Lab assay of single mutants.
Amino acid sequence: QRITLKDYAMRFGQTKTAKDLGVYQSAINKAIHAGRKIFLTINADGSVYAEEVKDGEVKPFPS
């Protein structure tokens, strides 16, 4: 399943989102408010992988 960072954070909370991605909650808040195009893939085992689309390139998040 693929979902935006904002939607994932709204569904699970910023604290869990940060923990799942290995970053601080403040980084999640800042990324959402900056309007960054970050998409999360939720794997069947429950693990989460995030990618950011920037300038036409897709890069892992966090980099």
Rank of each mutant, 00 (worst) to 15 (best):
Gln1Ile: 14
Gln1Glu: 14
Arg2Leu: 11
Arg2Gly: 07
Arg2Phe: 08
Arg2Asn: 07
Arg2Asp: 03
Ile3Arg: 03
Ile3Met: 15
Ile3His: 06
Thr4Asn: 07
Leu5Glu: 00
Leu5Met: 04
Lys6Asn: 09
Lys6Gln: 14
Lys6Tyr: 12
Lys6Pro: 05
Asp7His: 06
Asp7Glu: 14
Asp7Gly: 06
Tyr8Cys: 02
Ala9Leu: 13
Ala9Val: 15
Met10Ser: 13
Met10Tyr: 10
Arg11Phe: 10
Arg11Leu: 13
Phe12Gln: 04
Gly13Cys: 02
Gly13Ser: 03
Gln14Pro: 13
Gln14Ser: 14
Gln14Tyr: 15
Gln14Ile: 15
Gln14Cys: 12
Thr15His: 14
Thr15Val: 14
Thr15Lys: 14
Thr15Asn: 12
Thr15Met: 14
Thr15Tyr: 13
Lys16Pro: 02
Lys16Val: 05
Lys16His: 04
Thr17Leu: 06
Thr17Val: 07
Thr17Tyr: 01
Ala18Gln: 02
Ala18Asn: 01
Lys19Leu: 11
Lys19Ala: 13
Lys19Ile: 10
Lys19Asn: 12
Asp20His: 07
Asp20Cys: 06
Leu21Pro: 00
Leu21Trp: 01
Leu21Ala: 02
Gly22Phe: 04
Gly22Ala: 05
Gly22Gln: 07
Val23Arg: 02
Val23Phe: 04
Tyr24Arg: 15
Gln25Phe: 08
Gln25Ser: 12
Gln25Gly: 09
Gln25Glu: 15
Ser26Leu: 09
Ser26Glu: 12
Ser26Asp: 12
Ser26Lys: 09
Ser26Phe: 10
Ala27Tyr: 14
Ala27Gln: 14
Ala27Ser: 11
Ile28Asp: 03
Ile28His: 00
Ile28Trp: 01
Asn29Phe: 12
Lys30Met: 12
Lys30Leu: 12
Lys30Asn: 13
Ala31Arg: 01
Ala31Thr: 04
Ala31Trp: 12
Ile32Ala: 02
Ile32Gly: 01
His33Asn: 12
His33Val: 12
His33Lys: 08
Ala34Met: 11
Ala34Arg: 09
Arg36Ala: 08
Arg36Lys: 07
Arg36Thr: 06
Arg36Val: 05
Arg36Phe: 07
Lys37Pro: 13
Ile38Leu: 02
Phe39Asn: 04
Phe39Gln: 03
Phe39Glu: 04
Leu40Pro: 00
Leu40Val: 15
Leu40Ala: 03
Thr41Asn: 09
Thr41Val: 15
Thr41Arg: 06
Ile42Tyr: 07
Ile42Ser: 04
Ile42Phe: 08
Ile42Arg: 05
Asn43Asp: 08
Asn43Leu: 13
Ala44Lys: 11
Gly46Asn: 07
Gly46Trp: 05
Gly46Ile: 02
Ser47Gly: 08
Ser47Met: 07
Ser47Pro: 03
Val48Phe: 04
Val48Thr: 05
Tyr49Met: 11
Tyr49Arg: 12
Ala50Cys: 04
Glu51Ile: 10
Glu52Leu: 03
Glu52Gly: 02
Val53Phe: 13
Asp55Ser: 08
Asp55Trp: 09
Asp55Phe: 09
Gly56Cys: 06
Glu57Arg: 10
Val58Ser: 10
Val58Glu: 05
Lys59Trp: 14
Lys59Gly: 11
Pro60Gln: 07
Pro60Tyr: 05
Pro60Phe: 06
Phe61Asp: 02
Phe61Tyr: 12
Phe61Glu: 02
Pro62Ser: 04
Pro62Ala: 05
Pro62Phe: 05
Ser63Gly: 12
